[in-house]
Design a protein around this nucleic acid. Structure first.
Length: 478
RNA sequence: GGCCUAUUGGAGAAGUGGUUUAACUCAUAAGCCUCUCAAGCUUACAUUCACGGGUUCGAACCCCGUAUAGGUCACCA
């Protein structure tokens, strides 16, 4: 078998869409698993749609995702250039070869004529009007400077068949195939032409791409045939949906890689999650590093039907990745989010970080998890009510009174000593320590639910602030 | 509308004619643990594989039809 070479060929039209990223991932995984090459090719033949800076976003996204190209605009290679607009002359040369062979022809039809071909339901199909123009007439119009395009000359009968590695055998009647444009009037090739020329010239062995190309694949094969080239293997990928009927798209929002990284998703988690959309691993595990994905990926595990993007599951996976982060690394990533919270400049990010690393799934949850501590309103009496520990406002008042005196004598204010002080208070009052823990937690924060317990809260607040708050809480109960 | 493709639970899915009582993961629910919340641990969650026929001793798996969904029919990729 030939060397495995796959390619990811995005158009630089904006941010990197999750669906495209997944295609890149699969191409990369398949190539690497077979010790092959992964090529990045920029398809910028639509001058209108290309946006400045989009190429850099592609590079940056791939890099953050740890999807590294062996060949591409940045790293070069033996099959360059890897940007299609820089290959313009190559396409023209091959198009002319096709015209010579009769597999393609010049077309001078203008928009009005093309529009007049539309059927009642708006579908238009080119009628090969210019196919039979004489050589003289063509040369004359060319010389005159008439606008022209080059179209592919499709067979009108018969059936085209091919084998797709996911969908199996597919056959399409040739009369369904339109004489598509190969070279546009601006001299640049269409995707339909450029991708065939480049895939062949770059020796791509496996073409992995979206499902939307499935029914045009016979057109590409006809092109390969006209040149006498070997067909590549095809692997058509099923779309990622937003819900049962809508495709996940830029229009539906929040489907770009950087939307997720900005929300505090880790690239590893995003990659891991999207690898699972449309592909199913063999075993029970679903959390995989890139190395494991390379090892486990298989075309036989690719799905035949579309899959719905479920952010809840990606969140869960992200939480798993956050939990296993070394603490220093976690703090490095978390700090920008602490900076956006209300505790900015007030309390230790580190101490809070220890508490919330297991309590958040995405980094952007940090502010909402810590903001409560920045403001303090003493709790109402009924907030202390607890059936299990038999706490009511009277008990709370006594516990607060006693705790304040004990805590005032804690000289080295740290978690360990605070635990000890609480246990000691409970013993002296002949109460379960849970009673004291609970009352203090509420007394210190004014809220019933906190990430972490009372010693942790007291430690973060510091001695002075803690005692102040407890006194205010006690006041409130009187 | 023509053509192409798909259809297993709330989501991702395994499964390709007979130990599948339909794996596994997320979500959801309950319990344990526990100073609350998380985390962790345990358990529950499709008599049924879009629907209707057929083939077969036997079908989610094979065949036919219907429905539904997606794709495609651009000088966009």
């Amino acid at each position: 078998m030939n060397r495995v070479r796959t390619r990811f060929a995005p158009s630089p039209t904006g941010f990197m869409h999750i669906g495209n990223l997944r295609t890149a991932l699969y191409c990369y995984l398949f190539a690497k698993q077979n010790n092959g090459d992964f090529i990045l090719r920029i398809e910028d033949t639509d001058v209108e749609r290309t946006v400045d800076g989009a190429i850099d976003i592609i590079y940056k996204t791939l890099n953050e995702s740890k999807i590294y190209a062996d060949e591409g605009p940045l790293q070069g290679g033996n099959f360059g250039p890897y940007v299609q607009t820089e290959r313009k002359d190559i396409y023209m040369k091959y198009a002319l070869e096709l015209v010579e062979k009769g597999a393609a022809y010049y077309c001078f039809c203008d928009k009005e004529r093309l529009d007049s071909l539309a059927t009642e339901n708006g579908i238009k199909r080119y009628d090969k009007h210019c196919l039979h123009l004489s050589k003289e007439e063509i040369n004359e119009r060319l010389a005159r400077g008439d606008k022209w395009v080059i179209r592919q000359n499709m067979p009108t009968e018969g059936v085209s068949e091919f084998d797709d590695l996911v969908f199996g055998h597919v056959s399409i009647p040739n009369n369904e195939l339109e004489d598509q444009i190969l070279i546009k009037s601006d001299g640049l090739p269409t995707y339909n032409f450029a991708n065939v020329i480049d895939d062949h010239l770059m020796q791509i062995s496996h073409v992995m791409r979206g499902n939307e190309y499935l029914s045009s694949t016979p057109k590409y094969n006809l092109l390969y045939d006209a040149f006498g080239w070997e067909h590549p293997q095809y692997v058509h990928l099923t779309p990622i949906m937003k819900d049962a009927t809508r495709k996940l798209s830029k229009r539906h929002g929040d489907a770009n890689f950087n939307d997720f990284t900005e929300k505090g998703y880790l690239p590893e988690a995003i990659i891991n999650y999207i690898s699972l959309l449309g592909w199913s691993p063999k075993g029970e595990e679903e959390k995989f590093s890139m190395e494991e994905l390379i090892e486990k990926f298989s075309i036989s595990g690719l799905s035949h039907s579309s899959s719905i993007f479920d952010e809840a599951k990606m969140k869960w996976l992200n939480g798993e990745y956050i939990k296993e982060l070394p603490f220093e690394k976690f703090m490095e990533l978390a700090t920008p989010f602490f900076e956006k919270s209300k505790i900015k400049g007030k309390y230790s990010y580190e101490k809070f970080g220890k508490l919330i690393q297991t309590r958040i799934e995405i980094l952007s949850e940090i502010p909402e998890k810590v903001d409560f501590l920045a403001e303090f309103t003493p709790a109402e009496g009924e907030m202390y009510f607890n059936k299990k520990f038999k706490i009511d406002s009277e008990v709370a008042k006594k516990v607060l009174e006693k705790s304040i005196t004990v805590l005032e004598n804690v000289s080295d204010w740290n978690e360990e000593n605070l635990h000890a002080a609480i246990v000691k208070t409970a013993e002296e009052m002949e109460l379960k320590s849970g009673v004291v823990y609970t009352v203090l937690r509420i007394g210190l924060t004014g809220v019933m639910v906190t990430p972490g317990g009372s010693p942790e809260m007291a430690d973060i607040l510091g001695k002075e602030e803690s005692l102040n708050r407890l006194k205010l809480s006690l006041e409130k109960l009187k």
